[in-house]
Amino acid sequence: MMLAFEKGQEVRFIGHLDLMRTIQRALRRSHLPIKYSNGFNPHIRLSFAAPLSVGVAGKREMMEVPVEEGTTPQEFMDKLNAVLPACLRMVSARPISDDFPTLMSLMAGSVYSIHLPRNEKTDLAVSRFDDFMALKEYVAIRRTKSGENPCDIRPFIQDGHVETREDSHVIHLTTIATPKEGGLKPTLWLRCLFEFAGAEAVEATIFREWMLARNQQGDLIHMEDYQHA
């Protein structure tokens, strides 16, 4: 079963492994016909398209759960939602065949919305948005386990635009991910924008709105709409 779920703001600081354990426990409570792995310590093998960075909430996170026969998508969502805390919600479900590609291999990008309160710093940053997007290259320092690596973030950006409201700016940003190189953290991108604009960084509320895949034509589409040939 392929599912899209919401990871609410309240739990945006829950790490990926903790989230996984929580969903596994909910599945155990749900009495749904779940397929367990074989072996001495049978468990539920969940697979996710791509973990969400800690601190970011998700509107439609993608996950796959191995199920036995005998349940419908609607029942699956209902039963699972009944045993999940309110801040975790299944929002769509679709049965998929055994030969459906792994969600991880489908992962091609994300759509984020980045909400910033309006003030001098964010006004300044946003005023340089178009210039920033027009750059051909922007080298950022990525902190990874193996140390600090310089990395050009521009290839990870598809497009974006700013919507300015009375008391906030909302940046809509589409990023590109590849199975090999992974994706770009929206927090890193935002830090670069502030840095480029010469403004002091401001804490943002960030949502991943969609996860993306590429269809047979190579176009970016919502992952949950992906059709296997």
Binding site: V11, F13, C87
Partner: peptide
């Protein structure tokens, strides 16, 4: 909220666990 991104293990402070009182 503004403190959580600055600390280790923010899940220590956010509650909202399954079965916690609402």
């Amino acid at each position: 909220d503004h403190l959580l991104s600055k600390v280790e293990k923010p899940a220590r402070y956010t509650g909202n666990e399954m079965n916690s009182t609402t």
